[in-house]
Amino acid sequence: MLEEFGAEIWTAAGSDVTAALGFHYPTRMAVIRLTNGDLFIWSPIALTDRLREEVDSLGRVRHLVAPNSLHHLFIGDWKRAYPDAYLYAAPGLREKRRDIDFDHDLANAPPPLWLGQIDQALIPGNVITTEIVFFHAKSGSVLFTDLLQQLPPNWFSGWRAVIAKWDLMVASEPSVPRKFRLAFTDRNAARAAIRQVLSWPAEKVLMAHGAPVSEGAGALLRRAFRWLNID
């Protein structure tokens, strides 16, 4: 289930999840092993016995990260499985999931426990969700949750396929869906945050909803955010 994506980073695809209006999405998580052997779990998918066994073989699960307020379905299960792990909430998630006792809130700067190994940028001003984009320096991987997506062209059918095409969810390369573009209320703040993302020496891109990208990451990201008119 776990596939090595680069130095000290693995990815796993999970079962589909259904969102509003019956739209279903594939899921993907990432596991990053820090220099002290602790594991950073990004956007955890449904926890199975097999996945838990493979994760445990890599190290100690220490950080459970919900990178935006939409990716929280399985975070409680992981916390119950790993009660000693720290639980991190993206902005807005504490209010949405009052049944979960989060340990820390994600911000624009990385906490000391992964400082220098994983960088992060808070992308503000979106009414749908505030996403934290991460960069794993050792593998050169940028991790996007919902702000960058690419589903197979035949993933949806009927009227959902029409909407998905308009929304750029099934574009020819990973793109920022139109609904997220329209949901930015402060594009100047978004530009500043994306400039930080574009400054990273990206080699690869991981998306929760899309196949991983292993080459041409920097140029891809510049094309994906061209609509923001970043200098």
Rank of each mutant, 00 (worst) to 15 (best):
F74P: 06
H136I: 09
A85D: 08
L148P: 03
I32Y: 09
D56K: 12
Q196V: 14
T48G: 11
A137Y: 04
W159D: 12
A90T: 08
G125Q: 05
W200L: 10
L168R: 15
M169L: 15
D77E: 14
A193K: 00
R187S: 11
M169A: 11
L39Y: 06
A20D: 11
D56P: 01
V170M: 07
F134L: 12
R33H: 06
T129L: 14
R60Y: 04
S139G: 10
R28N: 01
E4R: 13
A208F: 01
A190K: 04
S43L: 06
A171K: 03
F184V: 06
R94P: 02
R80V: 01
R80N: 03
I163A: 15
E3P: 00
P112D: 05
G6E: 08
L93F: 01
I128W: 06
S69H: 10
L198V: 07
A109L: 15
K165D: 13
A46N: 13
M1W: 05
A66S: 15
L220H: 02
L21G: 00
L87K: 05
R181I: 13
R94H: 10
D49W: 10
E215W: 04
P110Q: 02
E215R: 15
K179Q: 09
P112G: 00
L228S: 12
I9R: 00
T11S: 13
A7Y: 00
W166G: 11
E215H: 14
E173Q: 14
E215L: 09
F23G: 10
R191K: 14
P112M: 00
W42L: 13
I128Q: 14
R60W: 05
L122N: 06
G92Q: 02
W114M: 01
A30N: 11
R52N: 07
F102S: 01
G116P: 04
W42V: 09
L51T: 10
R60H: 06
W227V: 12
E4N: 06
Q120K: 07
L51N: 08
F156V: 00
N108C: 05
I194K: 02
L228R: 08
A12R: 07
S172P: 00
A137Q: 13
L151G: 06
G216H: 13
L93K: 03
A81E: 13
L221Y: 05
P174V: 05
M207V: 01
I163M: 04
E53D: 13
M169H: 04
L122A: 11
F74V: 07
G116A: 09
I230T: 08
K79L: 01
D49P: 12
R98T: 15
R28C: 02
